[in-house]
Structures are given as C-alpha cells and as structure tokens.
Nucleic acid binder design. Structure first.
Lengths: 249, 249
DNA sequence: GAGATAAATGCGGCTTTATGCATTTTTTTT
DNA sequence: AAAAAAAATGCATAAAGCCGCATTTATCTC
C-alpha cells in the first residue's frame, strides 16, 4: 500500500470513527506501528487529525466536548459505568439493554478493549460504532421512540439464539420482594429474553431506584448475578441484596 | 506501444483501480520504470492523476471515495434530498440504504409526514428516530464500521421478507454500460437484496459519481426506476439515462 | 522514401524516501 | 510503586527517484 494511500485511509478512518488506535491501524494495514505513528505525526502537522497517545482523534470529536449535560444523575452514572467496564474482558460477547447508563458505559470503554457488543439500543450502538476496537451486532426490530431501543418478536427471537458472556441491564426498579420490575410490557418481554439467554446478568442502576417497584415483574432477585450502583459496595442500603447472594460492586 | 497510447492506458488504469504502482505498470507495458515515472510526471502536471512515491492515485481516491471536507457536496445533497422527499407519501413503507444523501433526506423530511422507514443505516435511523411521525424498523445484523450500516445474511434475509413501496439507494458509481457498481462485496449483496424486494428503486447520487465505475456490479440500468441528482432533469449529462428509460428528477 | 531532426527511452551512478528494528524514554494502567 | 504499553530516537536497508548521457524511435522535410 502506498504511503499516500495509507494516509488517506487513516484520515478517512478518523473522520468515520472519530478515533483510531495505532495498534488497530497497524494490523489493519499491515505495517509497523512505527509507520503508523509517523503517518499520524505528519497528518497531525498537516492539521488533518489530532495525534494522541495510542492513536488519533478527529477535530470534530475534540471540538464537541461531551454535550451530555442534561442527563439526569450524570455523575452517578459515570461511576456506575466505570465499575461496569471492569467486568468486560477482551473477546467477550456482551449484550446490553437501553438506557443512559449503558451509553455512559459505552463512552467510557477504553480504546484498547476489544469485545463484541450486541444491542438494540440506538444511542448505545452509536457510541460503540465510534469505538475503534469493538464489533457491534445490531438487534433489529421496530424502534421504540420512547426508549430508543428495538422491541418486538424479532428482537426476542434473535436474542434467544445468542449466549452472551455478559448482559448489562439498566433497570428502572428493584426491590427485595419482586426483584426487577418495569412498566412497559414490551420492554419486559425483551429484558426477560436477555436475562434468559445470558451467562451472567449485571444490573446497572442509580441507588434512587433501589427499593422501588413498578407494575410488571421482569424477574426475581435470584436471576441477578451482579448489581452495580454509584454507592460503595458496603453501603447499608445494599446490605439486603448482598445477603440475598448478589455480588454488589 | 506509443507514448500517447501508453498514457491513455495508464489514465484508464488509474480511473479503474484508483491507484497504480510504477513497478506493476512497468512490467505490464514492458517499459522501464523511468519511462513510467516520466509518464506519471506528465499526467500529474496535466492534472489527470496524482503522482506519489511508488505510483499514482486518482483524484477520486482522495476526493470522492474519502471526502476530506465534511461539507463537501453538502448543498448538492440537500437538493437531492428535497427532490427525493417529494416521492414519499403518507403511509408508505420506505426502505433506505446508507450514505449521507439518505441522512440528508431523513433530516429534510417534513414533520407532518407519517411513513414507515426500514433501514440498517445507523445515522439514518438516528434521524428518523427524532422525527415525530415516522415509524422506524431497524434491520439488524453485524454493524459495518466503514459504512455504518448493518450487513450480512440476517439483514438480507429480513429484507427479503419485505415488499416496501420505495427503496432509496445512495450509490457510489453509475454508468451506462455497467449500471450501479460498488467496491464492497457485502454492501453489494445487501443492495441487491434491497433492489429485488422493492417495488420502486430510486437512486440518489451527486452528479460527480455519474459515469464512473467500481469493480463490482450491483445491478444494471434497467432495474433503476428513478434517478435523482442535484442537476436539473434536462441536463445533457443525464440525457443517456433518460433515453435508457429511467425517470430522472 | 531517405536523411535530418527532435523526441523518447533505457541505463549507470548517486541521492532521497520509506520502513522496520533495537534501544531508551515517557506515559498509562494497575 | 511496579509493570505494561506507547513513543521517541538512531540506525540499517531496500526501494524509488533523479540526473545526464548514449541509443533508439518517431516525425518532418525535401
């Protein structure tokens, strides 16, 4: 591959994904990382991208600082996201539901982590799409405008054919007696399918939603493997859940 | 082989493959590399190609295939989008491919229009998702990071079960002899399925891509019902396509 | 169509460019 | 603070490019 050709390709990738990793480009194009680094250097000097440790960013990306200002309980969700990310190891298959917490997680995922994410949540997909090292499987079906996830028989059927390592579920209500509960019939169906198919179920929620309930049960406590909130794991509020056998992070 | 002849051949190769190597041309035409270099030099000066270390690239390589400036051809795409929207009536089922032109169309869709859009293009889905009156069906499958659309057997299988009224296809190359052509195998498979399933195929493209070709054929001209470009319908460039029986808007 | 003239080509040598590797330094992550 | 990953630095090598010149090939003129 010609040098110029390669550089055009790199710029293209940067514009497309907003960020690239030197290592990823190196294997993709099959040249040494040194060469990639030199390319990034030159392209940076030409102002086509911004070189950073480990790769490069597009201008548009760095200009648009995270505009996620109006998301409720942003900080809590960032804490949750950080904890959740620790569970994701390279090469894992990860199923995710919808909700802002999952989006936060997608954003915070380190650039070098390579995993496959399966999701029907459009905002989450958009984030994963911009990550240089993850593969994304989109669960198709009718798009629910409220929740911005795909819902329906097709989605459920597809999920049933999968056996992901992890399932990250943003939840709206959790209590000791009823487990996970929710208010939307279709969403409940989908969540049930997700829980059934997964090896490990990880619930993400801000503490506010703990010990609250909604009209429809998704599953009871015993199906939850790990619970992640913004609280420290020894917070008294979480004690009953630890006692119920759930790993709390 | 005469010099002129050789240079014509080189330009042809560059247009065809977007890139040529001096060494390859040298053995192909059986002249010294010096000669090739001198040819490339001249052709570069004449603006027919871009000479680089080791060979040459076509202009389209850096301009069309990997647009460097974001707003490139933005206006043209808005014009195309406006024309395309005129075809969408309430209650229609509309299948759309990927590409910025389709996204432009989604943005320009009047708020009161109520239709169902089926798509695997994430950027398009995001636009439709924010529209108050359209329903969105997401085509699921593995997400291609390059094109930001879902690609694969699942997507094709799903499309085959549909009979949408319209299919909007952003295309990369169109010429009289070969019809629609493209450069990515999986994308071609998907486009073929889309074309097959749809009642009416509408091609969207900026005029720059007309009379260009890429290595893989998607379908020939006869499958196209409507062609939309930024040019007025009576532009001489489009005449051959009108003569071929395509409705040009 | 033969010879003159100009253009085109190939080759040897020398220079520049591109790339990868080894080593040291810096940055990041745990 | 230690370990791991990435970057910088210097160097070796091979490929590509360039210059000038000899030779061949095409074009023009009579």
């Amino acid at each position: 591959m010609l040098k110029r050709e390669r550089q055009v390709y790199i710029v293209h990738q940067v514009n497309l994904h907003n960020k690239v990793l030197s290592t990823a480009l190196s294997v993709e194009i099959d040249v040494s990382e040194d060469t990639i680094r030199r390319d990034l250097q030159e392209l940076d000097e030409k102002g086509k991208l911004i070189k950073v440790h480990g790769g490069a960013l597009s201008h548009s990306f760095s200009n648009i600082k995270y505009p996620s200002s109006k998301v409720y309980a942003q900080n809590s969700k960032k804490i949750i996201a950080e904890k959740a990310i620790g569970l994701i190891k390279d090469k894992m298959f990860v199923l995710t539901g919808g909700g802002t917490t999952v989006v936060e997680m997608a954003r915070a995922l380190p650039l070098h982590r390579s995993a496959t994410f399966i999701s029907g949540s459009i905002p989450a997909i958009v984030e994963f799409m911009n990550h240089p090292n993850v593969e994304v499987i989109v669960i198709g079906d009718k798009l629910s405008k409220n929740s911005k996830i795909t819902l329906g028989a097709d989605a459920i059927a597809r999920i049933n054919t999968l056996k992901p390592d992890l399932c990250f579920l943003g939840i709206n209500a959790l209590d000791l007696k009823n487990g996970i509960t929710d208010s939307d019939w279709d969403v409940v169906q989908l969540k049930q399918a997700m829980i059934e198919s997964s090896q490990k179920v990880i619930c993400l929620t801000i503490s506010e939603k703990i010990n609250t309930m909604q009209p429809i049960q998704v599953c009871d406590l015993s199906r939850i493997d790990i619970l992640i909130t913004e609280l420290p794991k020894d917070d008294p509020m979480l004690k009953p859940y630890v006692d119920a056998g759930i790993t709390v992070l």
